[in-house]
Design a binder for these strands. Structure first.
Lengths: 190, 190, 190, 190
DNA sequence: GATGAATGAGCGTTCATTCAT
DNA sequence: TATGAATGAACGCTCATTCAT
């Protein structure tokens, strides 16, 4: 009986991968435990339920974005560099983590079924939207910035969905290109 | 215990609603049966398995699109009218039956888990993409048409996801407006 | 809707094959119906239940033996010819009908579970035992005849089981040879 | 709700009894669990499926024979004592636990339906056959020994079947007596 | 007599969760 | 804290049987 110290963070990290691959409902506590290197019952020492573990995963991912991505608008760099940085960061997340959009997938799967998740994921997307809007505000009016952020968000979301469905990264590549060029034009108009 | 005849089509119709609300995995045969006014076991007279029933739902929805929407490009009306018709048809589906996102939701939930669904849904989106491309081809070159169709598709998909997540129809409204205006400009350039 | 006339006897005949191949419990009314060329519900016009159908099969097989085999001892032929005739008849049944011993298989499978079958099958084996004993009585005393019949019966039963288990007809061939030689020796001693 | 530990061996033991009484298909996981003092679902901690449990039962019984019975030919005792020992051991199993026919019953019931069982049971009977042949080899040639072992095996099998069917132990008693006497004669001829 | 939709009980199995060790 | 046996509810599915047509 090898006793291995496991902390909540490493469980969260491995859980994210499993949830991403199988979805919420198809993932069993056994799957999560195995990936975390312990047994089913042991998970309950760290998280009170499967739902709580998922919430921790969502929160952890949100926290990561807050720390690494949503701060980009506040960096002391030119607007276009911010756009580029956001794109690079996005691609890292979407490509490296197996190409799935964790938040979107979980949101759609659990909508109407686990309302708590929906609320948390909404908060995440609001932050993301605000992040994008902040960058647009540097080149257009507040109102236009919000509309453009919504358009950008939708394009990215849609591209990620298409990319995932067809297993073709080009959808996201194209979207990022369009978004960059559009921003460039706006920046030049100033 | 009155025995009432039920036909496959009415089961498919009610199943679509349940699947849409709960997702594939959270929907039980019991749920589907109840909605269809039957007992669990009786469903198996019409469909060999839950998976087969879902396939029938997907196919039925695809068939509906083929019949009602994907024919629009071939109608003897001006290009802009086609765009308008497509938008009207889409909104009907997305708002009234919320049937459009059905495909996306099921696709994302069952990706890597039920490959058959993925294949069927890919076929659906390929048809839809081709439908959009066909309309663009009336005003731009083949190559451009395809790229624009991909962008349009992504915008719609993303807008529907955001709409569903935030329960705000404006996302799709905005996307449709953008798409229409973009097409108008292209048409004027000829 | 092709309406086909089916009579009880042809259902019994096809049922015997299915039961022999799959056993009693693994055979469904659907299997039986299909083999009989009609639909599940229609079977109930001919037999009140699966159990009743099986009883009819057992009775029918017993009747066949009564008519074709158990009369051999009374034929006006020499004792050794009777033994040969019994062996030929046995091999026809065991080899032609897929090599299984229907009565034994069903008996063992349903012992303690469907007492009615056991009773009927016991009656069958009593008749068979008496048939064999009758032939022995032509060459030995009544008491010896019964003992020899029991031995013979056991050897055949065992050989059929081994034959079926190992899918090797030689077990039964060998048993029949032994039985024939033993009888020959007894006949010569008179 | 007291939680009591159960180990695989005790489940196997109780499962053997239930399978023997009801057969494989008529035995439900509920039956097996109840006999083992557990709830249905708890069985799956010890065995992955009903089929795996049955395999464990078969293997366990085979192992018992290997340990207690199939070693008899190698014991440093006279040949006739070996025959007697085999008969005593057989009767213990057949009368007390009725475990001998277990193999035959399951084999016949699951033939063509669960091939894995057939293979395992074939291996068991091959070992048993070899065990009997080994004892015959001490008094006759190799070739004769094999033939006699096959005859002996068939007689025992058949006798056990008849015994079980008619619920009369005399069939097996008689078979054992014949087998012993036959061996005695062979031994005296040397 | 044949059909096939409907029933409802039961099956083997899964799984989130509990808890004594 | 880790274990793993046990729980009990639910699941997808099967099937003997019924019965309106």
């Amino acid at each position: 009986m090898p006793i291995q110290k496991t902390d909540a963070q490493s469980i969260i990290k491995s859980a994210l991968n499993v949830f991403l691959e199988k979805g919420y409902h198809k993932t069993s506590m056994n799957d999560l435990a195995k990936e975390a290197g312990l047994l089913k019952g042991s998970l309950y020492h760290h998280f009170a339920s499967k739902e709580e573990l998922m919430k921790a995963v969502i929160e952890s991912l949100h926290e990561y974005y807050r720390r690494e991505i949503f701060v980009i608008p506040k960096l002391p760099i030119p607007p276009l560099s911010k756009v580029k940085a956001l794109i690079v960061a996005s691609e890292e997340v979407f490509y490296d983590q197996r190409g799935g959009n964790f938040m979107t997938n979980i949101a759609l799967e659990t909508l109407n079924v686990v309302p708590d998740f929906t609320l948390m994921i909404r908060r995440f997307f609001k932050d993301w939207l605000e992040c994008i809007a902040a960058v647009y505000r540097e080149v257009v009016s507040d109102k236009e910035a919000l509309a453009l952020a919504r358009q950008t968000m939708a394009e990215i979301e849609g591209a990620v969905v298409m990319m995932e469905l067809f297993d073709e990264p080009k959808y996201l590549k194209e979207a990022h290109k369009r978004i960059y060029q559009r921003y460039e034009e706006l920046a030049n108009q100033i």
